[in-house]
Design a protein around this nucleic acid. Structure first.
Lengths: 350, 350
DNA sequence: TTGTACGCGTTATCAC
DNA sequence: GTGATAACGCGTACAA
C-alpha cells in the first residue's frame, strides 16, 4: 500500500531549485552553512511544493527515531493521567515524539514488546510491563531505560525514579498514633510484587516499633491497590469476626475508596469509629466523604523526572541511580482532624 | 550517533542460515511460503542472534508507519483518560503503535504538527489542536483523519465521532422542569468555539421552549468548561445582584465542581435551594457532595469508535460521515432526587 | 560552498 | 521455493 502523503521528496525540491539533494539536506539540517542565495531559493521551492521531510527515511539514515516510549499496564486508571502529562511536557520540549503502549508481563511474554530499540531511543518502564530479565537484556545491550515506581533490577544500572514511601508512610502512621491515639491500625497490602507496597509496609512497621506497638499479623489484609478488590477484602475482614481496630492504612487512595464503602455498609463511621488514610493523593481524594487524609505523591514530577533522566541518558550524561521524590502529608478529615492542612516534608525528617 | 540496538540485521541472519536476505524476509512476513526446513533453520538463527526486525527500515520499504496518532490540547485533564484508553485498546488490537502529542492551534501554527503523514498513517483530532484549514489540507491530500467532539470542517468528508448533545441536554433540562418544578435555569456556557457547548445550549433552549418557558439571557454565564473559571463566573454572578434562579446546568461536570464550590461559599444549598446538573459523568462526579446528576457521555466509546473508524478508513472501507454516540441521564442527588437511577436513552426519544 | 556516491535495513520485482 | 537486485528517502563522507 502506497504512502498516503503526496510524497514530494528532497530530490524534487533539489531539481526544481537547481541544486543537489545534498544541499537541500544541508539547508534542512543546518549542519553545514549554505549560501544565502541558494537557501532562499530552496525555501521558496519547499514552500511551493509543500515539502515535508520524510521522518522515517531520516530516521533510517541517522539511526535515530526521535521518539521515546512509555510502557504502562493499562490506560483506564486516572492515576496515570498526571504521569503521562509530566512525561509529555518534557518530551515535547525536546521535540521528541511519545510512543505509548500497554503491556502486561504476565502474558507469558508471548507478545512481543510493542516499543523498543526498533522504534524508540529509550523507554520509561512501569512495573508489571517488562520482566526483570527483559529489562536487564535491553540494558546490557546499551539501550537507555528508566524504571519508575520500582528499583533497578538487581545487578543492573537502570536508573529508578520513584516517590518516597517509607518515611512518608511512617509519618502518616505517626500522625494516626500521636494525634489521634490510634494503635490498632489495619494495613491493607498492595500486590505482593509491587515494591511500593513493600516499602509502605516497612514504614508502617517502623512507626509501630517506634511507638512500642506490637505488630499484629491479623491486622494485615490485601487490597491489591484496587478499589473493588479492597472493598471485597474489607467486607470479608469485617464479616469474619475481626480483631479490634481503630484505624486503617488503605495502601493507596484507590483502595481507600473501596474500604470506606465497605465500612459504610457496615455502619462504621469514618473518622469517628475508625480513621482511614491513603497514599497517592489522587484528584478524587479530596472529594471523598469524608475527604481523605493521605500522602501526596508527586506523580506528575515522577513523570517529568523520568523523562528528563532518559534524555540525560541519551545525551550521555551521568544520572543518579535512584531518585526518591519527596512526598508530604495532606491532612484532611478521614483521620479525624477537624481542618485540612499540609505537613511538609521537612517535618518528616527524624 | 549510532543506533543503540545491537543492530543484528536481516543480512546477518541470512548469512548464518545460509540463505538470502530475501528468504528471511519472506519467512518473516509470511507473504510467500518458505520450505519447512529452511524456515526452521532461519528461526533457530534468529533466536540465537536475538534478531529483531528494524521497524524503521521496514516502514521505509513498505511506506507504512504502522502507527496512528492522537492530537490532544493537553494531558493533565482526567477527562482524557478513558478516551486514550478506548483508543489504545483498538490500536493494540490492530498491532499498531499509538503516537501521542499535545498541540494547541492558537499557537499561531508556528510550531509544526508533531504527528502527521511522516510518522503516522492516520490521525485522531481533538478540537483546538488543528485548524480547520490544516485539517482540510491533510484531508485533501488523502490523509486519513477522524475528528472527535466536533463536526467535520465544512466542505470536508472527515468522519466525526461525538457524543450526542442536544437530546441529552434537553432531557436533563426536561427532568429539572418536570420532576423538580424548576423553571429559572442558569446555563453555563463552555468555550465559544467548542461545538459541544453550542449543541448543549440548543438542547437547553429547545427544552425551555417545549415547556413554554421564556429564554432569559440574564441566566446565561460562561464557565469555559473549566473548574476554576466556572467557579469565578459563578461567584461573580452571585455577587452581582443576580435574577432569581432555581437550577443550574453547569455545561460540564468539571464546571459543576467549581459552581458547587461557589454556591457553598454563599451558603446556597444544593439541591434544596438550587438544583445543579452537569454533563460528562466523569469518574469524580459520583463522589461530589451531593453526588452529581449528569449526562453520562461514553468517552471511552468515543475513543474506540474513533480508532475503529480510522482503521476502516485505512482499509478503504466506507465509514459514516458523522456518528453520535448515545448518552444517558444519570440521576444522582444534586438535582433533588432522593435516589440514584439511570434514564436510558430510549426514554429520551421524543 | 557544493555535488557525487554510498549506506541505513527492509521489502518487492524479477528471474531462475 | 529461492537468490540477486532495485527501490524506499534521506544523511554524509569524500572529493571538488
Amino acid at each position: 500500500m502506497a504512502q498516503r502523503t503526496s510524497s514530494v521528496t528532497i530530490r524534487d525540491v533539489a531539481r526544481k531549485a537547481g541544486v543537489s539533494p545534498a544541499t537541500v539536506s544541508r539547508y534542512l539540517t543546518g549542519t553545514v552553512p549554505v549560501s544565502e542565495e541558494t537557501a532562499q531559493r530552496i525555501q521558496a521551492v519547499m514552500d511551493e511544493l509543500r515539502y515535508t521531510p520524510n521522518t522515517i527515511a531520516r530516521q533510517l539514515a541517522t539511526q535515530r527515531s526521535h521518539a521515546i516510549g512509555l510502557l504502562l499496564p493499562d490506560f483506564s486508571h486516572t492515576f496515570f493521567t498526571p504521569l503521562i502529562g509530566g512525561i509529555e511536557a518534557v518530551v515535547s520540549d525536546e521535540r521528541y515524539s511519545l510512543l505509548l503502549a500497554t503491556r502486561v508481563s504476565t502474558e507469558l511474554s508471548n507478545k512481543p514488546v510493542p516499543i523498543g530499540p526498533h522504534n524508540a531511543e529509550g523507554l520509561i518502564i512501569f512495573p508489571g510491563t517488562l520482566s526483570d530479565q527483559e529489562i536487564i537484556r535491553l540494558n546490557k545491550a546499551g539501550y537507555p531505560l528508566v524504571v519508575i515506581y520500582r528499583s533497578s533490577p538487581s545487578g543492573s544500572t537502570v536508573p529508578s525514579i520513584t516517590a518516597e514511601n517509607v518515611r512518608a508512610t511512617a509519618a502518616i502512621i505517626d500522625h494516626l498514633i500521636e494525634e489521634h491515639g490510634r494503635s490498632r491500625i489495619v494495613f491493607v497490602r498492595g500486590p505482593g510484587d509491587q515494591e511500593d507496597s513493600h516499602w509502605r509496609e516497612q514504614g508502617y512497621r517502623s512507626s509501630l516499633q517506634d511507638h512500642g506497638i506490637e505488630h499484629d499479623e491479623q491486622l494485615m489484609i490485601t487490597g491489591m491497590f484496587d478499589r473493588t478488590l479492597a472493598y471485597r477484602a474489607m467486607s470479608e475482614f469485617l464479616n469474619s469476626d475481626p480483631p479490634h481496630f481503630d484505624a486503617i492504612f488503605a495502601g493507596n487512595d484507590d483502595s481507600a475508596i473501596g474500604i470506606m464503602d465497605a465500612l459504610r455498609e457496615e455502619g462504621i463511621h469514618v473518622p469517628e469509629d475508625v480513621s482511614v488514610v491513603g497514599f497517592d493523593d489522587m484528584e478524587l481524594s479530596s472529594f471523598l466523604n469524608p475527604p481523605l487524609t493521605t500522602v501526596h505523591a508527586p506523580t506528575e514530577e515522577v513523570g517529568s523526572s523520568a523523562a528528563r533522566c532518559l534524555f540525560d541518558l541519551l545525551a550521555g550524561k551521568e544520572v543518579a541511580q535512584a531518585t526518591f521524590l519527596p512526598t508530604e502529608i495532606v491532612i484532611r478529615r478521614s483521620c479525624g482532624c477537624p481542618h485540612e492542612r499540609l505537613l511538609p516534608l521537612k517535618t518528616l525528617n527524624k
